[in-house]
Nucleic acid binder design. Sequence first.
DNA 1: TAACTTCTTGACCATGGAGTCAACTTACTC
DNA 2: GAGTAAGTTGACTCCATGGTCAAGAAGTTA
Lengths: 191, 191
Amino acid sequence: MTAPERPRRADARRNVEGIRRAALDVFRASGLTTPLDEVARAAGVSKGTIYHRFGSRRGLIDAIVDELVAERIQGIIAAVGELADPLARFEEYLLRMWLLQYDEPAVNDVLIRALPDSEPLLSLCERAQRFALGLLRDAQRAGVVRNDLTADDLAWLILERGAIVQACAQQTREDYQRRLRFLLDGLRDNH
Amino acid sequence: MTAPERPRRADARRNVEGIRRAALDVFRASGLTTPLDEVARAAGVSKGTIYHRFGSRRGLIDAIVDELVAERIQGIIAAVGELADPLARFEEYLLRMWLLQYDEPAVNDVLIRALPDSEPLLSLCERAQRFALGLLRDAQRAGVVRNDLTADDLAWLILERGAIVQACAQQTREDYQRRLRFLLDGLRDNH
DNA sequence: TAACTTCTTGACCATGGAGTCAACTTACTC
DNA sequence: GAGTAAGTTGACTCCATGGTCAAGAAGTTA
C-alpha cells in the first residue's frame, strides 16, 4: 500500500554506507557506547546526519549489529558443528565464544544488556543458546561434563566473561586463554 | 614544627563523623561512584561541606576505605588462618573473598582500579596477596591444587569476580555461589 | 539553468555530575 | 552578649554526552 518511493539521493546513499563502515570500525575498537561524534568524525559527516539517517544511536547499532556480531557467532556454530567428540564440541564452543569476546569487545556490549529487543540479534542468541543446550546435553549424556551444570549456567558463564573482558582489558590473550582452561576443567565430570 | 592547632569546632566534628557514616552507607549500597550529592543528602549537609572537609571524592574514599573494606579482609584472613587442611584453607579463602565481593559491591570499586595509591589499602592488599601466595604454595605442595596456577592468576581470579558482580547483579547469591564451585573444582589437581 | 526537493550542517538545548566560592551562619572566647 | 574566626551553604561554572532543528547546500528533474 506504500507509494512507490523515489530512490534516495546519491550523497545520502554514500553517507549511509560511510556511516555504517565508520560505526563498524569505531564500535569494534571502542565498544558500542562510544560517543556518536566519533563515529561522525570517522565517517566525515556531522552528528546530525547520523541521527537523521538512523534515528538514534540504537537505530545505528541495529543497522550494523548483524555484520558486527552475527556472522562471527554463526561461524562458531558452524565450526563446532564439524566436530564429532561431545567433549570437544562442548569445550570448543565455549572457548571460541570466550575468545570472540576477547577479540571483539563490542560483542559484550551487545550481549550484556544494550539491546533488549533487537529482533535479528535476539533470534540469533536464541539459536546459539539452543545450540549450546544441545552440546551440553550430549556432553552430559556422554558423562564428560558435570551434571549439575544447567543451560542457565552456560549463558551466565558467557555473560560473565563479557564483564571480565570489559573491566580487565590489560591481560594478554595468552593469559586470558590459559585461565579459561581452569574454568573448562571445572566443568568436566571428574568424580 | 607545626603550630599547635586549635581543636575543630563542634559542628565540624559532628559533620565529619556524619559524612563518614553516610558515605559508608551510601557507598556500601551503591558503590564508590555514587554522586556525592547523595552522600551529602544522607548526611544532612551540603555537597560543599564534603569538599571542604575531605578535599575531593578521593579524599572521602581514602578516609573510609579502611572501615569499608580492611576489616572484612582481615576477618577473612583470620578465619582461614584457623583451618588446618591445605585444600580447605585455599578454597575457603577464595570462596570468602568472592562472597565478600558479592555482599559488598563497593569492595570491587576499590579492588578494580579506583585507588592506585591509597597507602593503607595498598599494604593490606599486599598482605592479602602474600597470605594467598602461602595458601597456594601449601596446597600445591600437598598436591591438591593444580601446579600451573600462579599467584598472578589468583589475583586475577579475584579481580575478575569483581567485574562480574558489578555487571551481573541480578543473579541470586545461591546461583552465584554454586557457580563459584565450578571454578574452584577447576583449580584442583586432578590429573 | 532554474526550480524543487532532499539532505546536511553545526549551533543549540537538555541532562547530570564534579568541583568552587562569596555570602551567610554559627560556635567559641573573653 | 559582642566580636571573631571557623564552618556551611547552594548557586554557580565547567565538562561531556545525547539528541534536535532552522537555515543553507546540493542532487535531481525538466
